[in-house]
Design a protein around this nucleic acid. Structure first.
Lengths: 340, 340
DNA sequence: GAATTGTGAGAAAGCGTTTTCTCGGAACGT
DNA sequence: ACGTTCCGAGAAAACGCTTTCTCACAATTC
């Protein structure tokens, strides 16, 4: 039995009483069921507005078995990429009357599974961004999280839609862009070792080196943050490379900042590329050459997949495998011809 | 009556059946009620883990009259300030086992009231960021949204905690910083006219001009975005001012970028200040002099106020009026001595 | 040994909805 | 005028849980 609320919220019973009808009739009226006498309907509506009645969503959810809410699990809310996904998701979902519950795992991947489960049970579906989660764990978790949409991950299980960014292709294009500018010594400032998207980049770069035997490509440890980029200035300079592929825009910006402090001119002395095309990438000095990912659109698409799942739309898009977003090379000021 | 789920989720009844006890006992065990025989408790727990039972939060919420969720209304999720508030709020709330539901009003203030109400009914409380909402509307809405915490707004009603940033004081400090550097012609690149925080800045600047009769201060129309700053380059140059107080960091960054394109050197030819100290402010070129607001901490504090409200902690902090955060002057590279 | 207290667990009510079931009464047909 | 249909609205069950109420049984007391 519930606790005594200090001021009882006004419920369907109050409206029913005031209108002199039963709960059932009030419910019917509120839900636009037309099997109710217009006279009575009007009376109910009048009572409802007069009492300023708003149906309790929790009661509704219990009866209907749905919450009109979806959850999203993100590893780090301070990362612009996830912010953009969240924004796209939230806005698209709002269009269809759905809300978004956020679950920030704060990079603590041990919490991720529990967090995802809890969020899922409160919602009608889950969008999962878990770049660091082990494949096995994801595979094991997946069934209990349905309906679910994955971002930058896949499961063997075919009925989980997956939205992927072709990081491999994007990084290749960036590398080739550098080669086109005459760079022969290139360094990749890698992201977190266990990150799935870092793996894709590495794979793409392996293809790249295979196709360009004359090019020297070094792998440098980095990270995914501004600070990581800033701290790797020494390693970058020591590498002797003239073209630097940063893991993402944040890292590139950190590097840019560090290089500036050292008096290294970009792009005259060194070319730097990012990845993602976060909003700030076009406002750095110099402006950042990067691989543009339509991140907000990705969030929006995530909702559309989710919506199809929730509505049980027989979509063969799922069977066709993950939806792959192709990054677009965005050449700006941070890359230039190699200094001989 | 609920719809037929394709695969019935496993509920308390299943556990009760398997353990050979009543629903009530299962509930007691799950909630750590010690009035139950250890033997039986063990049996129930065994059944629960074997069936992988997880209580349905909706049922729980209905019975308990609480959702362990709070809502936050933000006008624009792409604004770094609100992102930071959201992050601080979400992380702090998570520490206490609460989740955050987001409601992005997309700057459509006509939707704000409905959005806020809907979010509120799904949650145990609401954090409201509605800088553009009319005072009257806020005042009218407030009672139905309790418990609520306001960000950068106040109500006459004293039992709504309010967290404010002292924009007036902050902008004065920035202006005085410019004066200290020898600037005598200063321009304020104003934010949205109806924004509450813009009003506070203007009020602060009025105090400033009163105290500094010799200083010329112009008010320029601006906005709150990067683009707004970028587009106001002409107006800024036409003003003849040498010190520019931008509405916030975003605007300052846009202005910086526009000035760079025009070949105007900062800070040699012109000094520029921002406001907020968003993460990127320390990585612009030149780095941005700004008034640092502990935004994430503000989000965190918002949760603490909310928690006190939810727990009915008799806090006199509320009666004492709004909690005011003092911005801290952060002098970086974008301001320098005035060019004679 | 009967009365009293205590303890642990089941029955049932309640949270606020939606929806099925049921039934009285009006409208219709013969 | 009687039987059949149909329609609209109330009663009640269901959603999944918590908690009060109640009661059977065991343990204690005189």
């Amino acid at each position: 039995m519930g606790r005594r609320a200090t001021t009882r919220r006004i419920g369907i019973a109050d409206v029913a009483l005031k209108a002199g009808v039963s709960h059932a009739t009030v419910s019917r009226v509120m839900n636009g069921n037309f099997t109710v006498d217009p006279t009575i309907a009007a009376r109910v509506r009048a009572a409802a507005t007069e009492l300023n009645y708003q149906p309790n969503p929790v009661g509704r959810s219990l009866a209907l078995g749905k919450t009109d809410t979806i959850g999203i699990v993100v590893p780090d809310l301070s990362n612009p990429t996830f912010q953009a996904i969240l924004r796209g998701l939230s806005m698209a979902a709002a269009q269809d009357g759905y809300r978004v519950l956020i679950a920030d795992s704060s990079e603590v991947s041990s919490e991720e599974a529990i967090l995802a489960g809890e969020a899922r049970r409160r919602c009608d579906g889950l969008v999962l961004c878990a770049p660091r989660m082990a494949d096995a764990e994801l595979e094991e978790l997946a069934p209990s999280l349905q309906p679910m949409v994955l971002i930058n991950r896949t499961t063997v299980d075919t009925h989980t839609p997956s939205l992927m960014v072709d990081y491999g292709r994007g990084i290749q294009e960036l590398a080739e862009h550098l080669v086109g500018l005459g760079h022969t010594r290139i360094a990749f400032l890698a992201g977190p070792a266990r990150s799935a998207s870092n793996g894709l980049r590495v794979a793409g770069l392996e293809k790249f080196t295979a196709a360009h035997p004359g090019i020297e490509l070094q792998m440098l440890d980095g990270g995914s943050t501004f600070e990581a980029g800033h701290q790797s200035v020494d390693a970058v300079l020591a590498s002797g490379a003239t073209g630097i592929l940063a893991f993402n825009d944040l890292v590139a910006m950190g590097l840019l900042s560090g290089l500036h402090e050292r008096g290294v001119r970009v792009p005259e002395d060194m070319s730097v590329t990012g990845f993602d095309d976060i909003p700030f990438a076009r406002y750095t000095t110099p402006t950042l050459t990067t691989a543009a990912v339509p991140i907000t659109e990705l969030g929006q698409q995530a909702w559309h997949r989710m919506r199809d799942l929730i509505r049980n739309v027989p979509t063969d898009a799922i069977a066709e495998g993950p939806t792959v977003f192709q990054p677009r090379l965005e050449v700006r000021g941070s890359t230039g011809v190699a200094n001989p």
